[in-house]
Design a binder for these strands. Structure first.
Lengths: 230, 230
DNA sequence: AACCCGGGCGACCATCGGACGCTGGTGCC
DNA sequence: GGCACCAGCGTCCGATGGTCGCCCGGGTT
């Protein structure tokens, strides 16, 4: 699978060679091996290293079981700001609105927690997703929201740049996956400009503060930083 | 067990009637039923309510197993500042020093995380306790540190008051448990003075910011607040 | 020596943050 | 209608925050 072994040049080259963006990206060239060897779960600094287990997937529906399947959401396509998508698709304005909705659900949860004297979440946690589902927003779910966090981040931190990227990828007929990958690189530049403190970049923005920095974005920043220092 | 159904008047009455402290506490009277009915795990606001399961305890050592038992630490006793405890006991200065040590271990972990581009903890987490153990501080462990957090909190936020409380409880020959209970109430007063934001009280203090607010303290603040408003 | 008080901390649990990859919707031919 | 692509999200997993209560150290009798 491509996504797990993302190569910087894959996503950057199409832009930096065909349609350069404001931030310089000519130096974003890294060997395949470097990222292939970048552990997928490098989140723990201590010694425990344990082998990955194969996961079993999706229990295949019992014979006597009730089938209450909600149809899945329409896939996203790359749209320009204000553009409404053709066919059975969702646009990126809708995607970003989902993040705003989550922010509102978080505020509701915080309000409730404060009333009840409970621990008050500062981020969009499982509890918030549960609350959203409970409140009828069944179209919101954790894997989806976590998947596109960095895209929303770019939208929050530099709408101009975000809009420009959307237009380019739309015009070029790229799929959502390609656009999503491309969103990493402007963020890496912002981290660089903030002495590689991507956490700080997120925390400084009102709407972004409530989202966890995606592991992959943190890894990419770290990788780029080490290249710079060698 | 007494601790799980702490009654405010139990801990406060001995002081407010025999040896009043700076903060007024005459109004801290609450019915037993109120705290008995205060759920022990009220941390989740959504609907799931599931019955508590009985826990099994301490696997009784296999016949062929190696017995590498570290002897347990000496119990704490209530000591005045500077006093060194008599007999096989530890004093409260030592207890508080343990918290400072944890703070240093946290800083080390943060340093390591930053170097490796990993998620950087802002609080004393499992990872920090693991690091402490790894670094040879086998006398530090999570249950102990969590148990006395609010005592350390009082020490950080108002040494005078903390020292005074220690002297009183020492002179009266009270045990550590009683002193520990008594530490809650000055903190509740500080929360009151900070519009019941105990989280904020912790966060505003440099050394305290890194410790989670204990559930019981949050509950006591909430209870006291609701009394005030009725 | 025997007893019992009380507290240290091993071990457990629900839930968390995080991610994979199956399933099936969708547009194209 | 059939096929191939690709992304939504159900479902899993290691680790976390939090706590209980067993066990035994220690002072007292």
């Amino acid at each position: 699978r491509r996504e797990n072994t993302l190569i910087l040049s894959d996503a950057v080259a199409p832009i930096s060679t065909k349609d350069p963006l404001p931030f310089g990206q000519g130096h974003c060239q890294v060997g395949t091996s470097a990222l292939l060897s970048l552990s997928e779960h490098s989140s723990d600094s201590e010694d425990r290293r344990l082998g990955k287990k194969k996961q079993k997937r999706k229990r295949p529906r019992e014979p006597g079981e009730e089938a209450e399947d909600r149809p899945r959401e329409h896939p996203f396509i790359v749209t320009e700001p204000g553009e409404l998508p053709r066919g059975k698709k969702n646009g990126l304005d809708y995607l970003f609105d989902l993040y705003e909705q989550c922010g509102r659900f978080l505020e509701e949860v915080q309000q409730l927690c404060k009333e009840r004297g409970e621990k008050c979440p500062m981020k969009v946690t499982n509890q918030v997703f549960r609350h959203a589902k409970h409140a009828g927003a069944s179209y919101i779910n954790k894997p989806k929201m976590r998947h596109y966090v960095h895209c929303y981040a770019l939208h929050c931190l530099d709408v101009e740049h975000s809009n420009h990227l959307r237009k380019i990828y739309k015009d070029r007929g790229e799929n959502v996956g390609a656009w999503r990958q491309a969103c990493y690189f402007p963020l890496i530049e912002m981290a660089r400009a903030n002495s590689w403190d991507i956490e700080g970049v997120f925390n400084r923005n009102e709407r972004l503060r409530i989202w966890y920095v995606p592991t992959r974005l943190r890894q990419l920043c770290h990788l780029e930083k080490s290249k710079e220092c060698e």
